[in-house]
């Protein structure tokens, strides 16, 4: 502000005299200004110091190199990952995991809590499904039973093969995701999916206004976009936080087991009981849907045997049902 060097006296002329007086004036203003600034800064830092001294609360956090340190609460900042972080980690997946789901059909009573929790979490309409519960019957003489049907997260996914733009992809932890920042809406994946697991945003998504400000999280697929695909994500956002998927924890009847194939352990979403995956599959005669198509699903079903309840006609759901078997 007042750093200009004074010129030697012999060079002074009228212009310079005028110039100097202007410079002097500026210098004075500058001095006053900086004094005021310094004072204000001093007052503010004093205020900050006092404020911090009074709060005094600390919190224990784990640093990146696994040390437990105690820091003042004021230093903890709310971390909001940007789109780039969401996209990068969302496409990479969670290292070392191979997520797997087991659905025990002998326990499903068609409560549809899984459907509701899922639609709630993903801002979907009642007829927009990531997971749906179906009434199944293999043949005329076999009993009817209920079957929750999420995306099968195939290890050989036909939908991923046909996607022209890499919008839907398979992660290292086994999850098949959809990137609605990339999807062009050709619906080739819907045609290719033998499980009819995918849905399309034919109209403006349900919570489009409320989700406007949200950063797109590929692991939650919210906010949705009109003209793009959506599908079951195995609640990848919850798995990242170490929580069970929405449908799994919402089930009141203990239908769902979820876990990591690498650990050979799955946990029941209702009872929280953890069992050995291989034993559960072996002892209950587990199977997968349409294995002859070679899609290698990551969802296993335990047959609907020894049910301790009667099969009840599905309640008056909002939408008329159509069977085609």
């Amino acid at each position: 502000m007042s750093e200009k060097k004074k010129k030697p006296a012999e060079e002074k002329n009228l212009d310079e005299i005028l110039d100097t007086s202007r410079r002097d004036f500026l210098k004075k203003v500058g001095l006053v200004g900086s004094a005021a600034l310094t004072g204000a800064a001093a007052l503010y830092s004093g205020y900050r110091f006092e404020k911090e001294k009074h709060s005094g609360a600390t919190i224990k956090v784990l640093t990146e190199d696994n040390r437990l340190v105690e820091i003042p609460v004021e230093q903890v900042k709310d971390y909001k990952p940007g789109l780039k972080v969401y996209q990068t980690r969302g496409r990479e997946g969670i290292e070392g995991k191979r997520w797997v789901m087991v659905i025990d059909l002998s326990k499903c009573r068609n409560a549809r809590k899984c459907v509701e929790a899922c639609q709630d979490a993903h801002h979907l309409r009642p007829y927009e499904y990531h997971i749906n519960t179906l009434v199944m019957q293999e043949s005329k003489n076999t009993p009817r039973y209920f079957m929750p049907k999420p995306c099968q997260h195939c290890d050989n996914p036909p939908c991923v093969s046909v996607c022209p733009v890499d919008a839907t992809f398979k992660r290292q932890d086994g999850i098949v995701l959809i990137d609605n920042e990339r999807c062009i809406g050709c619906r080739f994946c819907m045609s290719a999916c033998p499980y009819s697991a995918r849905m399309f945003h034919w109209q403006e998504p349900l919570a489009v206004e409320g989700d406007k400000e949200r950063v797109y999280d590929i692991e939650l697929n919210v906010p949705h976009k009109k003209g793009t695909i959506s599908k079951c994500l195995f609640s990848a956002d919850r798995l990242r936080e170490g929580i069970m998927p929405y449908c799994v924890s919402a089930c009141p009847n203990g239908v769902f087991y979820f876990g990591d194939e690498n650990e050979d352990a799955v946990t029941n979403g209702t009872t929280k009981e953890t069992v050995r995956l291989s034993e559960l599959l072996e002892q209950n005669g587990a199977y997968r849907l349409l294995p002859e198509l070679g899609t290698k699903p990551r969802v296993y079903y335990l047959p609907p045997k020894n049910r301790i309840f009667e099969f009840r006609e599905p309640g008056e759901t909002e939408y008329k049902e159509q069977h085609n078997t």
Binding site: Y127, T133, M136, K149, P194, S196, Y319, Q322
Partner: peptide, 14 residues
């Protein structure tokens, strides 16, 4: 119109 798994719980026009 006839996928492997039945199309249920949709509005008819779907």
């Amino acid at each position: 119109a006839h996928p492997y798994l039945p199309a249920q719980n949709y509005p008819v026009e779907w």
